[in-house]
Computed example of a mutant assay.
Amino acid sequence: MAMGRPREFDVDKALDLALQVFWSKGYEGASIADLTETMGITKPSLYAAFGNKEELFRKALDKYVDGPGGYFQVALAKPNIRAVVEHMLYESADAVTGPDHPPGCLAVQGALTCGDAAESIKQELVARRAKGEQDLRERFERAIAEGELPEGSDAADLAAYLSAILQGMAVQAAGGTTREQVRKIAEMALRTWPPPPDLATV
């Protein structure tokens, strides 16, 4: 006799559906009933496959970072700092206004409505955003060392500024701002970006 029945659903597809729910409703706004209904599975199946709601959210967040949020790491790998910033801003604008998923950013949306009961999730999202800002700072430090940014540029300040722009674009998109309008924010940020040293002195 078999020791247990195989799962009757596609775990990866179910995780994709859970991601959409969390993205749309935030962590606390997404109830277990919302999740199981959208995923097409029972509560026991959800717990058996994913642990609990918190673990399901963490798995969905990982999937988001590797999928819709993947532009961030792609941008960091660009060969010059202008390309890094352009890719990050424009791809973010497109990602937070994509027609195939909820508007905004899961990492931002998930934390905005977290209360005391979801403190661990809130702290994880804060830590992930801090890691992203640290990655930016290190990339800017490299650009300064390689002479791509004006002497005296502050990598930490630039990373904080760009992070704030990206998060603000996500909040704007979640509130209904169109892609065209969000891309204008990206364009404005690029117009204020420090020029390379050779152009700054022209």
Rank of each mutant, 00 (worst) to 15 (best):
A145P: 13
L149N: 10
R82W: 15
R179N: 00
A77E: 14
G115N: 03
A160S: 10
G132L: 03
A173K: 01
R179G: 01
R128H: 11
D116E: 07
V182M: 00
T177Y: 09
A60T: 07
K78D: 04
L162Q: 05
K59I: 14
P68S: 09
E146V: 04
A60V: 10
P79A: 12
P68E: 11
R82D: 15
G152W: 02
L162H: 04
Q181C: 02
D135I: 15
A107D: 14
D154I: 05
L112A: 14
S163R: 11
T177G: 04
S120K: 10
G175Q: 01
F72H: 07
K131W: 12
D66L: 14
T178N: 02
L125P: 00
G168A: 02
H101M: 03
E141A: 05
A117H: 05
D66Y: 04
A111E: 15
R128E: 12
A143M: 00
D154P: 10
E148H: 01
Q109I: 14
G132M: 04
Q181L: 05
A93K: 00
S92E: 13
D116K: 03
C114V: 00
R139I: 10
D154W: 08
I165D: 03
A93T: 01
V65Q: 11
P79F: 13
L112C: 07
F140H: 07
E148T: 03
E151T: 13
R137P: 13
V126I: 13
R82C: 15
E133C: 08
V126Y: 15
G176A: 09
A49Y: 03
A48K: 04
L125N: 00
Q109N: 15
A77V: 12
A174T: 07
